[in-house]
Design a binder for these strands. Structure first.
Lengths: 147, 147, 147, 147
DNA sequence: GTGGTCTAGACCACT
DNA sequence: GTGGTCTAGACCACG
């Protein structure tokens, strides 16, 4: 699977939880990438921050070192990180890249949502109404202690 | 792949376009199933409607006959269709099933959208605002003939 | 190593021979990629051509199947090939991509040559003269049967 | 890495810029060696000239002192420099060595260029023409202020 | 048959 | 210590 594929997969949203799901069809390395990417997008990880070594990453996520290495390899493909040989892997320092990433990903999420809703018959405004209703009901349920 | 897997994949939203994408990571048979499911949900295909034979399906979508057969096999597993031996495959006649399907899928789409947006730092109301803005901008661009 | 790195490495010219050199510092997968890329550039492999399966490739080059898989993975990164799951890997059908590839690579070779020559004191015209002389001497040696 | 390896790498042309690139795959110590070698070849550094101490070198290039030490170690292996214990490191005084170095490296550059061009279908004369054209275009662009 | 993923463990070079 | 590469072999899903 390539950089292109990874980006496509991210756009498609092949992810489940922050905690890895080893049984989901989604590749582990993608799940980890998405977790890290989200931390970068939210500013939890800042430009130039050192990422854990691939060996540490392997331990943190209980995955094989090779899989961890692949995570960083693909992230570098995507321009999310860079490597100093013998020193470590770092979050990209191109802040525009990170901003662009957030915007792109947000747009993708919305386009994906709208596109899928349209496929089952909802117009754009219907999407808004549907979401409004969904959130209100969710809120009501929470207030009533239904959860 | 089992029925459970298929259902999970549908929930994850492994789909791209009505036109099949043979190079995407998403399995062909899933893409076809989702296409048919969407037609059922939107009422384009009605309960009891006869579906094309798997051979016809293979031709229509330019896919391998084995893949077409798998489509119907999985759809039957999911309760979306049933088979009359020697006669053909038909859309399920359980209307509640179809209604439930639409509701479930819609909820899943919205939950997925909200969940992903939250991961990159958007609250529930922020999701609404962001979507509102996105749709307005899209509309404005179309009106200005930017597309 | 990432797509970016691969492209950079190709530009740097980490290669030795058409036949793989397992002792050179250049990664095997890169050597194979460059071999295939050259075949594509020269038209030896045409757009849409099916490439050998990764298992076949592994046998042809006497490398591990994983290494062969990496070759195709990186090539897809670079836009040199695409994959139909369960069917095989194919040379990209974007002819412009291939043309651009040839032009880019040729320019890179020349820029690299000029840049390195300048570093050791040769001006642009001196590069031409030096190369002219080099080729003439080579020719003379061959004609005199020195090889 | 041994002297042999270093020599091979130099022949392959693993270098980028006078300014070091810490993210390129090319080893830092090699980049520094090539920089110093180029200065020797061009006469910028003369036979017998004192080179900066490895500590100074480390500071000048912002590299690890161990890396700086390795630079001199490998250079001595290659016969580019010699060390007077307690006094410092000096450019070799064997002028023939330096001359030979320049000739060898120049030939290597040209052979490398020709070899790579041949791989993508250019004959020897075509190489000359291509280079001629490339330089002319470059010149024209500069004269037109395109850069 | 195809490619994709993962584990396990090794070796290497660089800092 | 770091990352990079390679081998070996396994399992899976897809067509």
């Amino acid at each position: 699977m390539t950089c292109k594929h990874v980006t496509a997969a991210l756009a498609r949203g092949n992810e489940k939880e922050a905690t890895l799901d080893f049984t989901s069809g989604s590749p582990i390395y993608l799940q980890v990438i998405m977790e890290i990417r989200n931390r970068i997008i939210t500013g939890n990880l800042k430009p130039g921050d050192k990422l854990p070594s691939s060996r540490e990453l392997a331990i943190q996520f209980s995955i094989n070192p090779n899989t961890a290495a692949r995570v960083y390899s693909e992230m570098e493909n995507m321009g999310l990180s860079y490597t100093k040989r013998g020193i470590g892997t770092f979050v990209t320092e191109e802040e525009e890249k990170i901003l662009a990433l957030k915007e792109e990903y947000t747009s993708e999420l919305m386009e994906e949502f709208i596109r899928k809703m349209k496929k089952i018959g909802y117009g754009e405004e219907a999407c808004m109404e549907c979401l409004r209703k969904f959130l209100d009901e969710k809120k009501a349920m929470q207030e009533n202690g239904c959860i």
